[in-house]
Write a protein that binds this DNA or RNA. Structure first.
Lengths: 204, 204
DNA sequence: TCCCCTCTACCAGAAAACCAGTAGAAAAAA
DNA sequence: TTTTTTCTACTGGTTTTCTGGTAGAGGGGA
C-alpha cells in the first residue's frame, strides 16, 4: 500500500492480516518510496493500493509510472475523491479498479480478490458514479456543425489555417471564420484552450 | 440493438430469443433511428447494444446522446475495434461495458446480465486490454520539468505568454522559451497540437 | 571540479492567429 | 415557399506565436 494516513494504514493492515494472513504487506508513505522499491525489485508486487493524494505526487502520475515500470502489478486507486473524471484518468492510466476510503472490510476484500483474479474492481459507490456520466459533462457540448467538427480535428492535428484550406479546397479566410466561430461557441480565445475543451468533451 | 450488419443482427436475435425469451428486442440500423425512438419513448429501453461503426455517427457520440436523453438506459459498446483509447472514451461517455464481436453466446449473455444488474461488463478479451495500458501510451511521455508542466497547464487554460509571465513573475521571453522547448519535446509546431497530445497523455 | 540540466532572459523577423465587421450562395428546416 | 443555418469569402488591422539564434546563473551529479 502507498498511503500517508496512519489511521488508514492501520485499518488496512488489520483487515488484510485477518483476511489474508499469508500475504506480505508492504507500506510506503510516498510515491517515490514505492517506485524506488519497485526498481529494487526483491519481491514481485502483485497488487498496489495507491492513495490518490500523496505528499509528493498525484495518483494518476504515480499509477502511470508504476505500470510502466512493473506492468504486471495490479493497481487499485484508493481515495476519498469520487470525481468521475479522476477515476477515468486512473483507469486509463492502467488502474484495475478504484475504491473509496469508506469501503467496508467486506467490500475491500472483495475488490482485492477481484483485482487479483484479473477483473476490474470498484467499490459500490464508485460503480454508481461510473455507471452514469455527470449531467454537466454530457450537456455542456456546444452543438457543432459537421464542418466545424472536421476543422476542429484538423486544428488539433497542428495544421495551420492555410494547411486546412489547402486540404479542404476552400479559402484560408473561410477557415479563419470557422476558427472564430468555434472559439466563440466554446467561449475561449485561442486554439490551445479550444483544443483542451474539445479533448475533455471527447470531440477529438 | 443498434447495428447495421445483418449477420450480426440475426446472430444476436437468435441468442437473445433463446436465452431471454421474455425480453423485447428492438433493432435499429442507424444511430438516428434509435435516438428518434428514444424521443418517442413508448417503451423504456433498459439496455442498448451499440455498434461503434455506424453509417451516420460514431459510437462515442451516439453513446453520449443516448445517455443524455435517457440516462437510465444501460449502454454496451459492441464492435470489432479493440483500441484501448476508444474503449475508454466509450466508458467515460457513460457506457456500462464493452464487448468484442467475437464473443461467445455465453459471454454475451453474461455481460448482458451483469450490465442489467448495474455492474460494468466486458468481454474477456476487453478485460485484458483494459487491464494494462498499451506500452506506447505510457512510454511516450517526454520527460517534462516541473516548470514545463506548470506552463503547459497555463497554456491549456488559454493564457497568452504575457499572461503567464505576469502570473509567474518572470519575463515573457522566458515563457516563450519554455513554449519552444515544450513543442520541441512533443515534436509539434503549435500550441493546438501540443495541447492535444498533452490531453491524450493525461498531463492536463 | 567540470559538465549537464533547468530556469532565466534577450533580439529580431516571419508567420500565424485573433478581432470586428460584412455578405452572398447553398442547404436544411419551418 | 419562406426562413434559418451553414458554409463560403473578403478587408484591414492588431496581437500573439513561432523560429532561430545567444547566453548567464544556479543546482546536482560524475
Amino acid at each position: 500500500m502507498v498511503e500517508d494516513h496512519p489511521v488508514v494504514i492501520e485499518g488496512l493492515r488489520r483487515i488484510l492480516a485477518q483476511e489474508m494472513p499469508h500475504a506480505t504487506l508492504l507500506e510506503f508513505h510516498t510515491g517515490d518510496a514505492f517506485l524506488q522499491h519497485l526498481r529494487g525489485a526483491q519481491h514481485v508486487v502483485t497488487l498496489a493500493l495507491l492513495d490518490i493524494t500523496l505528499p509528493d505526487t498525484n495518483g494518476v502520475e504515480l499509477c502511470q509510472k508504476v505500470k510502466s515500470q512493473s506492468p504486471d502489478t495490479c493497481v487499485l486507486g484508493f481515495s476519498n475523491h469520487n470525481d468521475r473524471a479522476l477515476i477515468m484518468q486512473m483507469l486509463s492510466s492502467g488502474a484495475s479498479g478504484y475504491l473509496l476510503k469508506n469501503v467496508s472490510a467486506r467490500e475491500l476484500m472483495q475488490c482485492v480478490r477481484e483485482a487479483l483474479s484479473g477483473q476490474m474492481a470498484f467499490s459500490d459507490e464508485i460503480k454508481k458514479i461510473i455507471a452514469k456520466p455527470s449531467a454537466a459533462q454530457v450537456k455542456a457540448v456546444p452543438p457543432l456543425t459537421k464542418r466545424e467538427k472536421q476543422i476542429l480535428r484538423l486544428i488539433a492535428d497542428g495544421k495551420t489555417s492555410a494547411d486546412i484550406a489547402a486540404e479542404l479546397l476552400v479559402s484560408p479566410f473561410t477557415i479563419e471564420t470557422h476558427r472564430r466561430n468555434l472559439m466563440q461557441k466554446f467561449d475561449v480565445n485561442n486554439a490551445a484552450a479550444l483544443i483542451r475543451l474539445a479533448a475533455q468533451l471527447q470531440l477529438i
